[in-house]
Design a protein around this nucleic acid. Structure first.
Lengths: 231, 231
DNA sequence: TCAAAATAGAGAGCACTGCTCTTGACGAAG
DNA sequence: CTTCGTCAAGAGCAGTGCTCTCTATTTTGA
């Protein structure tokens, strides 16, 4: 163990440093990350990087995983900081946390939620961390159901869709109302769209008061879902 | 004029062929479009392409403009094909048309709605065509207002947001209810999110019945907006 | 303790990219 | 018929991901 550790530790340090430098490059130069540039910044020769990451895609995957985890952490922390019974407060807190993280890390957000890199296929490791934000959102609704603060909406669902949703629910929140789950996913979809529009510059010219716009839009979805509270 | 035309015509033909070949490459190889590969496909040498497009970004811009126009055409045609008074039918038709176009042209959709290319800044020419889909959607709501089929929602809006929305409305549909405009933009945002999630493979594993899911989700937004009709 | 094995970085090199510059050929206009 | 603008071609530059070989160093096992 400790015998390993001298080399293993410096290796772990190198991996960390590469990722840090790569993240910095990502922030300035966008998604077209250059291994050679990273190596240059570290005073290494480009081929040495390949001792730590077998390919550029592997480095990207590592960054993607970290981004998912960072966003998931932020979102879950925001949810946990609000009184459990305040469903609407939790909803807004989660939405705002996701937006704040995205605005603070635009390049990493683009990495995980932008158009997929052509040749790149996200490995299965990314599936679970990618689902953390929607799971938190739906968890709020689930809490609302179990505490009686929320009632299942009477939406009519075609059978195939109901079965699909039931299967999704079974893996996360067994017994969850399919119609409410669908409404929650609508909220999650809209949240992603909101953040993407803002980040990719499709809103800024026309709507300067972006905070107010964001809160109003997420509030609309809270209304659609039936979260109790103001408005 | 006609004297010009021999050369001018073959030149226009070349430009068209380059764009066509580039679009094909886009579809197969994704967003990292290679000028050299396009030239190779046309039996040209790479430098010859620069007679027609001064840089790779200019070629991309041309493709982006065409993509915006194609989507705009599809969406407006879908709206026009439905009885004007059938607001909900028009809403669904527009949403389905946008999705169908995106599924048929995933690479071009990614080009215009994916994460922005790092060094690339969309020129102002793209602003107007990019707004055609949301303008069509909001137009449905505007028609609903003027024909009395839709009533302005009583949402409370903070003053700064109301002013921003009023300014947007003034440019498109003067006198439009700001609250209804906001709800319409929620629908547009969610539509974009729906298509992106489906296209970028964030939904397929869990929800095999995607048509039903899509219709249900867009129906939820139609409900939120208050469009009259089934459910 | 000392040799064998694993690991590290350096450098050269391949095939590719966007882009620039120069050269020579061709068609259009005076 | 000559001049001028346009075009394709080729060489070349700087950059990319990635592979291979060589050498130095550290770790490991007998």
């Amino acid at each position: 163990m400790v015998a390993h550790s001298l080399r293993a530790r410096v290796r772990a340090g190198m991996i960390d440093e590469i990722k840090t430098v790569a993240r910095r490059h990502l922030a300035t130069d966008g998604a077209n990350l250059s291994l050679r540039a990273v190596a240059r910044d570290m005073g290494m020769v480009s081929s040495a990087i390949y001792r730590y990451f077998p390919s550029r895609d592997d480095l990207l995957t590592a960054l993607i995983l970290e981004a998912y985890d960072a966003l998931g952490d932020a979102v879950e922390a925001a949810d946990a900081a609000v009184e459990r019974r305040d469903l609407r407060g939790r909803w807004h807190a989660v939405c705002r946390a996701a937006r704040a993280w995205a605005l603070a890390h635009p390049a990493e957000y683009a990495l995980i939620y932008g158009s997929p890199v052509p040749g790149y296929a996200a490995p299965d490791d990314t599936v679970a961390p990618a689902q953390r934000p929607p799971v938190v959102l739906v968890g709020i609704l689930h809490d609302g159901l179990t505490t009686g603060r929320l009632t299942p909406p009477p939406d009519e669902l075609p059978d195939p869709l109901r079965e699909d949703l039931a299967e999704v629910a079974a893996g996360l929140y067994p017994g969850m109302s399919e119609a409410l789950l669908a409404r929650g996913m609508a909220g999650w979809t809209q949240l992603f769209g909101l953040i993407s529009f803002e980040l990719f510059g499709r809103i800024t010219r026309t709507l300067p008061h972006r905070d107010e716009y964001f809160d109003h839009q997420t509030g609309l979805m809270a209304n659609l879902i039936g979260l109790p509270g103001p408005s």
